[in-house]
Design a binder for these strands. Structure first.
Lengths: 198, 198
DNA sequence: GATACTATACCGGCTGGACGGTACAGTAAT
DNA sequence: ATTACTGTACCGTCCAGCCGGTATAGTATC
């Protein structure tokens, strides 16, 4: 929400973003079961009534998170196209960096999808498609694009498995492994597909 | 449980496997939230008391599923080593075939892990490690082994996103895409790592 | 410029239902 | 007689959603 539109309002809705942040945080850190309305309100420093003022139901809260994800994905797809280090390096590395808002939103939404939210599952699939298309625009061989997208999926999947434990990313790929992986994929992308039989 | 040990018992425990099947099915198809003891018992055609006769608590039920997963993974690792079509083709293809018991167990356990079960998360990580080691035994370049394992993870991740909707694997890789992917990875595995700078 | 009213942004207690788990009496196969 | 259940009733807890209330800021009227 742009600042200019706030001026005429009585009070800026400080709670809305705080609630969304807290919801995301609990989903990523403690799993879907822990992300109750009470816990979310408490973590956001807001009363339960206050939360429900902004999000009339849990579904509305989920929709709010999905909206945030959609916006971040849209921004990310643009970032892929214009990244100075190239689209592949940007995409693969950003799939493992849990510090960025996008990754938190993806993992949080994936948790909801696993928990049974059809809307969350749809949002994740939509994001995946947009990434695949963006990669496809920069990689000639569609098989290589598929491989890169799947590796991104795999990195997210792994990230999601480390949220519960105390240590984050305990067996996540190390920096030099990631360097080698990026190098491998970029070699694949630039090299023309070899003489394919059939 | 081997058949030989059943003989001396009054009645073979028919419900035990039915309960585990139903639990798996609900986890895969409807998500973790839906996999309650009541729903599991109902789907298994067993009374709630009957379920609790075999699994004294929900944790015990989860442990039962993890035990089944561990056994299937052990069998699968052996299958990777001895697959006639080669380890890579077997591994990649088996990661997407939702019909096999292993895949159902993996997705079901992953759902539990996402929901917050530390034991389930541990089981999934353990399975991942064993696959990575098995692939590493057949692929010289560790980066290629990592890439293959991550693609396997990505395929599971995608499978897990299609359980909620009516149509299974609606945008899962098609057969010819999988053929091309397998061919790409086998090319990578056999080709020696090119002159790496540094 | 004081009063009356409205809209926005919250608080916190309550309720009804679902869920995990317990208890236990009975039944049927072996 | 032991094993493998069925069926029902019940308890404590947790949670989503609801509702009545409060505080504050803007607006309209006179």
């Amino acid at each position: 929400m742009p600042l200019a539109t706030i001026e005429h309002m009585s009070r800026p809705p400080a709670a809305r973003d705080a609630v969304l942040d807290a919801f995301e945080q609990i989903l990523v850190h403690d799993g879907e079961r822990a992300a109750t309305l009470d816990a979310t309100a408490r973590a956001a420093g807001v009363s339960k009534g206050g939360l429900l003022y902004h999000f009339a139901s849990k579904d509305a809260l989920i929709d709010g998170l999905i909206g945030r994800l959609d916006a971040l994905v849209e921004h990310d797809v643009h970032a892929i196209e214009t990244a100075p280090e190239g689209p592949i390096a940007y995409f693969v590395r950003s799939s493992v960096a849990m510090a960025h808002p996008l990754d938190r939103a993806v993992v949080a939404t994936a948790r909801l999808a696993q928990g049974g939210s059809a809307a969350a599952a749809r949002a994740i699939r939509s994001a995946r498609e947009r990434w695949f298309e963006a990669i496809g625009r920069h990689v000639a061989d569609p098989t290589v694009a598929l491989a890169i997208t799947l590796i991104g999926d795999g990195l997210y999947y792994d990230s999601a498995l480390h949220g519960d434990d105390d240590e984050l990313g305990v067996d996540a790929p190390r920096a030099n492994e990631m360097d080698a992986l990026v190098a491998l994929l970029e070699r694949l992308a630039t090299a023309p597909p070899p003489t394919t039989p059939r």
